[in-house]
Design a protein around this nucleic acid. Structure first.
Lengths: 204, 204
DNA sequence: CCGTCACTTGACCAAGCGGTCAACAAATTT
DNA sequence: AAATTTGTTGACCGCTTGGTCAAGTGACGG
C-alpha cells in the first residue's frame, strides 16, 4: 500500500487533511490535537478522514516526512564556490524567509524536538546529520583558510537555526515584547541578523 | 487561600509534586502529561496529589510562576556601569549556564510559548516586556554611543535567548547531530558563543 | 440497469482521562 | 484518651478520545 496509484479525489482529500492537520498540530502539539478538531478543520467527517489516514499518528508522520525535505533546502544550496561570508549570509536570509513563510511547519518541528523527537530521531541521526556534517566541513574549511573568522562550524549552524526559527516558534513572545509595533519585526530581524552575522563572520 | 500557613508536610509534598510535575510536563507538554504519570513520579496516590493541588492546571501555573522569577535573573544583573561588551558576554554566559543547569525549566517554557503561551501571555506582555524594554534601552544607549556595534537591542536579546535556550530545548537534535561526541557540547557552545558575540558586538 | 468499487458517515465502543467521594489512618490539640 | 484536624487512598464517575463498523451513496464500465 505504500506507493499505490491514487485517484484525484484521494490526492485532493489527503492534501486537505494534511493542511488541516498541520494547522491543528502546530498550534496544539500532537497530544493536544484531536481528530475531531482536524476533521472539522478539514471539513469532513472523522471516519472519512480515517479512510485516508489510518491513524492520527499516520498524519503526523506524513507531515514530518514532507517537512524535512523542504526544511533542509536552504542548507543544501550552500555553495562551496561562492564567497564564504555571502554564502552564509544568504543561508541566514533563506532560513529566515522560511520561518516567515512557513511558521506552522517550524512550530510542528519545534514541538516534535522539544518533546524528544520520538518520531524523527532516526531521520535526525541519519540524513540530517549527514547533510549538516557535510556543510559543516565546508564551513570549517573556509574557517581554516582564514576566509571567515575562526569558529566551530556545527555551532554556527545551530546558532543560525536558533536565531531564525525563534521568530516562528516564539512568535507570541516576540510580538508580546515588541508590541505595539506592527508586523514588521521579520524585516527588522532580517536587517539585524545580516549585520550581526556579517560582523561575527568577517575575519580580523 | 493564597498565602496560608503551611505545615511541614504540605511544604514537602508540594515540593515533591512540583518536582515530579516539572519532570513530566517538560517532557510531554501540558496536554501530553497525565495526572497518573505525575502521581507515579511523585510516589503518591492521585487523590492525595489533588489534595495539594486542586487541578492539573494549578500545578502548571505554580510551575510557571516559580519559573519566570529565576528565569529573568541573568538579564536583571546586566549592569549599566560595566564594560558594554563584557556585560553582554556575561549575560550570554549566565543564560547558557542556566540552560545547562535547568533544561527542564527551559523546555517547560518553550512548550508553553510554542503553543501560544495560553497561561503566561499577560506575564510576557507585562513584567517581562517591562524588563526587556528597560535593558534594551541600556544596550541601545551603548550602541548609540559607539561603545558596541550599531544594532537593534531587542533583536540582540532575542538572539541571545535563541542561541542559549536552543541547547536545552533542542537537546536531542544537538546530541543527534554531534554524536558520537560526548557531553562536552555545552562547553563548546560556551566557547563558540563567547567568540561569536564578541566579534559581533565589538565596534569595527 | 446491473455489478463493482471508491467514497462517505451516523452510531457506536473501549480505553484513558481529570477529578470526586467516602472512609480510613495519622497527627495534633484539648 | 477523646476530639478534631490533617493526611491518604481505593473505588468510582462522567466525559473525551482515537478508532471501528455496518450501512449507505455515488461514479463508472459493461
Amino acid at each position: 500500500m505504500a506507493q499505490q496509484k491514487r485517484t484525484r479525489i484521494q490526492e485532493k482529500n489527503r492534501a486537505t487533511i494534511l493542511e488541516a492537520a498541520l494547522e491543528v498540530f502546530s498550534n496544539q502539539g500532537f497530544r493536544g490535537a484531536t481528530l475531531d478538531q482536524i476533521a472539522t478543520a478539514a471539513g469532513m467527517s472523522k471516519p472519512n478522514m480515517l479512510y485516508y489516514f489510518r491513524s492520527k499518528e499516520a498524519m503526523h508522520i506524513a507531515l514530518l516526512e514532507r517537512l524535512l525535505d523542504t526544511w533542509l533546502d536552504p542548507l543544501r544550496t550552500l555553495d562551496a564556490a561562492g564567497d564564504p561570508v555571502e554564502e552564509i549570509l544568504g543561508y541566514v536570509r533563506r532560513k529566515l524567509d522560511m520561518a516567515r513563510a512557513y511558521p506552522r511547519e517550524s512550530r510542528l518541528f519545534a514541538n516534535e524536538i522539544v518533546q524528544g523527537a520520538p518520531r524523527i530521531l532516526t531521520e535526525i541521526k541519519g540524513p540530517l546529520k549527514a547533510l549538516v556534517d557535510d556543510k559543516a566541513a565546508l564551513i570549517a574549511g573556509w574557517s581554516a583558510q582564514g576566509r571567515i573568522a575562526a569558529l566551530d562550524a556545527h555551532h554556527l549552524i545551530f546558532s543560525i537555526w536558533a536565531t531564525t526559527q525563534h521568530y516562528a516558534d516564539f512568535d507570541v513572545q516576540v510580538r508580546g515584547i515588541l508590541a505595539p509595533k506592527g508586523d514588521a519585526h521579520f524585516d527588522d530581524a532580517a536587517e539585524f541578523l545580516a549585520g550581526f552575522y556579517r560582523r561575527a563572520l568577517t575575519v580580523g
